[in-house]
Amino acid sequence: MKKATRIFARIFVWTMLVLMYAPILVLMVFSFTEADTIGVWNGFSFGLYPQLFQDEELVTVVLNTILVALASAAVSTVLGTMGAIGIHYSRRRMKAALEGVSQIPVMNAEIVTALSLTVLFVYFGIQFNFITLLIGHVVLTLPFVVLSINPKLQQMDPNIYEAALDLGARPSHALRRIILPQIMPGIFSGFLLSVTLSLDDYIITAFTRDTSFSTLSTYVYGATAKGALPPTLRALTTVIFVFALVLLIVINIRSHRKKEAAR
């Protein structure tokens, strides 16, 4: 009986995993044939890969996506780190107010956030451009930076900072040398989380961009209106997947090593 449940459990979990990967794997398999749609096999070929890199529009789109993600993550990380430290040392009422405001974009529906920003820009007569898009992505990612730094600040021993001051360090110096190193893991994961949220975003991008500026999300969305995905996107999916897999393995090996070293 026990063994039967265990076999059922394995079959169930693996079936779900296969289903989760099916759409991506199918795209990856058909990235090695030059057919118009998936399901048609025109013989094995690497042809889509050079085509991907020669497709100037798609390359621009990918670069735009990365640019927005890195720029917004950088802004969010700086603002969010300062914000998290400031909130941590604020008086109770101010702290509660700021923490409440931080929760709004997390709880709110993304489309409401997006529309509210659009209305703001329209109301003040601001043209949609790269800056409005950047602001949109910062709104999306900033609370998550604060949320990932917060636990680190709470775990910190407040006495070390005081000790540094007693030993004659200026507050700004102590901030840089004592507080920042201790919350660095939180800052780092906040940055990474920002990048992934920004890369994945469609709604805020669609509402706050200048329509001549496309990211991967808006490009693919536009393509779906015309029918099946363009073949070069299959090659791109494979590239993204392999990149993510390598990154994931590297990050996990590193954190594993750190845990080993800490032992």
Partner: peptide
């Protein structure tokens, strides 16, 4: 000292008021 650290949240607070709180009130007004 407390004064300096607390005020680090100022840019954050301004950003959130300008781009999160005010837009929500604008939606309500619209």
């Amino acid at each position: 000292i407390k004064f300096t650290r607390k005020w680090l949240a100022l840019p954050y607070a301004l950003f959130m008021i300008l781009f999160v709180v005010i837009p929500l009130f604008l939606i309500l007004a619209y």
